[in-house]
């Protein structure tokens, strides 16, 4: 309980700093949300009223923006975010099979996080790496020609233990 409230007050100061720094920019909301998510990994729901007040918006408007964009999230992601490209170029090189394999290996579906909190799996629609499909992104690193074997290697490099599929 103590830890949580500490964390929250830490978050609050960070959110205040980011909002104060950016609120006078034109169209400041997206830069502010990016700033917060860059630092915390998500945009805490508790921060919405403060952001709204600072920009003279309603809470509904801020919530509407957060929920519109696939990238913004309201809950913390796992330690690693693994994005698998689902778009056509990757499909042409076998991404559907790899995508299913990845879900099975990690034991989760898209938009879910492994039980140990390590990996969050997300779909992405194009990483601009279409010359070397299928593509996967982990953090800011992009991987080419990802088949089952390479996906195994990527997951292994994160130190994640695959779930036993029975």
């Amino acid at each position: 309980m103590n830890k949580t409230s500490h964390q929250q007050s830490g978050h609050t100061k960070l959110v205040v700093d980011i909002v104060e720094e950016l609120k006078l920019e034109q169209g400041a909301l997206l830069p502010i949300l990016h700033g917060i998510q860059d630092e915390l990994g998500y945009v805490p729901t508790e921060s919405v009223p403060f952001i709204a007040d600072s920009l003279n918006l309603s809470r509904a408007e801020v919530h509407g923006v957060i929920s519109f964009y696939h990238y913004f999230r309201s809950s913390p992601p796992g330690r690693y975010t693994v994005q698998i490209c689902r778009a056509e170029s990757c499909q042409a090189m076998g991404s559907r099979v790899m995508e299913n394999y990845a879900k099975e290996l990690l034991g989760i579906d898209f938009h879910e996080t492994t039980a140990d909190g390590e990996v969050t799996l997300l779909p992405v629609y194009c990483l601009g790496n279409c010359a070397c499909s299928p593509s996967v992104r982990v953090g800011n690193e992009i991987f080419s020609h990802v088949d089952k074997i390479r996906f195994d290697a990527i997951v292994a490099s994160l130190g994640h233990q695959p779930v036993e599929v029975t």
Partner: peptide
């Protein structure tokens, strides 16, 4: 905002 699959010239 080069979102089309199969494109990377902007990038």
């Amino acid at each position: 905002d080069e979102g089309d699959s199969g494109t990377f010239s902007d990038r």
